[in-house]
Nucleic acid binder design. Structure first.
Lengths: 217, 217
DNA sequence: GGCAACAGAATTGTCAACGATTCTGTTCTC
DNA sequence: GAGAACAGAATCGTTGACAATTCTGTTGCC
């Protein structure tokens, strides 16, 4: 059997619907505040309404979907104020991860970091904000993995999912990648030097500047 | 109709079952790793299995319950290592909240803080660890409220829920309340002085000492 | 013409029964 | 006597239908 076949019903139908819908939201295919009708989604994904419902409940607890009793589900809209709050939490948690990563990272991970830094520099030099934004994600992800902080990583993934729209807007702002790059390079250096204190400081500086940029919306 | 009546069925049965079970777990009425059978719980709370099931799913995403496909649900056991990780996240997030609270707290909230500090001193002097532990919770809660950080507060509440058992053990350890008290008083002073930096440092010092105590298990 | 009450449609919430999976204790074979 | 295969029980997963709620467009009244 094909391993990515559509589970018409039964099996892990919920899981399938969950990932499809999550991706759709993260890709911005769903307009903000768009109504999510259980029946429609269930039909379009080829699962039963119960599976779809379960998926929506999951996404609600992930903070991607908002649901009102007897009124249905909507794509959650994150205001700028919320985005700032979320980023402040990221600042605290990623600071922790960066500090841990500075001591816990393997040599192979340090090499990966170095490579990412070069790729990011190149993306900025080439004026390619989309690639840069992706590498940016990879960098933060790598640091999280290297930290070994399972709990913090889980929280951060949830927080990040809620920021897609804002992140996208931010990346396309002129001049933003340049500033972001130098902050990231400083962070990479701190981790490579295995200096937890400096790594945490660098993360905080970086995310503070993100917050400023968000507020300038 | 009585406002806390048992919704024999219908109504918001899931909500009812959810809160009952959550309280039971938080109070430690459920043994660690105890099996949670949907039918049994549903009957004992007077709701249908579907409602109970939904409640269990919610608790799973809150991290209080662990569930294995086709094998059922258990009260999640938090190992010492996890407790340490969770507390490290608390350290980061409560540090943020304390700093914000130092600038955002109202005068009334500062008075409340002062009162709590006195009550805590008294509880320690009286050798009453249970009361002290409750006041401790109140203090952290008050600081969270005063911070106005909606996102961080939500994350912290989830993290804290997972620590009940460890928190309980910690509070009964001889000598622990004394050390904890002085750290808390320093924190209160920092917030009353409206010094964000000092407040964050005080929180970090306090939770670091909690981590040390946890590790000494 | 504007506003409130009302019926119909759309949508979600709940339920009870059926089907699938996993565990457990027993039996059969070597 | 030990291990594997097997049947039975327990439990969870899924489905389809029904009930409750909310929204919407219309009608009647002032």
């Amino acid at each position: 059997m094909p391993k990515e076949a559509r589970p018409g019903s039964g099996e892990q139908a919920k899981q399938y619907a969950l990932e499809r819908l999550r991706k759709a939201i993260l890709r911005g295919e769903m307009a903000p505040a768009q109504r999510l009708v259980e029946n429609e989604l269930a039909e379009s994904y080829g699962v039963t309404r119960a599976s779809m419902r379960a998926a929506l409940l999951d996404l609600t607890s992930e903070g991607l979907v908002e649901r009102i009793r007897n009124r249905g589900s909507r794509v959650r809209v994150v205001t700028v104020e919320e985005a700032v709050e979320i980023t402040e939490c990221r600042l605290a948690l990623e600071g922790l991860c960066a500090a841990k990563a500075a001591t816990a990272a393997t040599d192979a991970q340090l090499d990966e970091l170095t490579g990412l830094g070069k790729a990011m520099s190149k993306a900025v030099a080439d004026g390619d904000p989309v690639t840069y934004s992706e590498l940016n994600q990879d960098l933060h992800g790598l640091i999280r993995d290297a930290s070994g902080q399972h709990t913090a990583v889980g929280l951060l993934e949830r927080l990040n999912a809620q920021l897609v729209r804002h992140r996208f807007q931010l990346a396309l702002r002129p001049g933003r990648p340049q500033q972001s790059l130098s902050e990231h390079l400083a962070l990479i250096e701190a981790i490579r030097a295995r200096d937890p204190q400096a790594a945490e400081t660098a993360v905080r500086a970086h995310l503070s500047s993100v917050i400023d940029a968000l507020r300038a919306d």
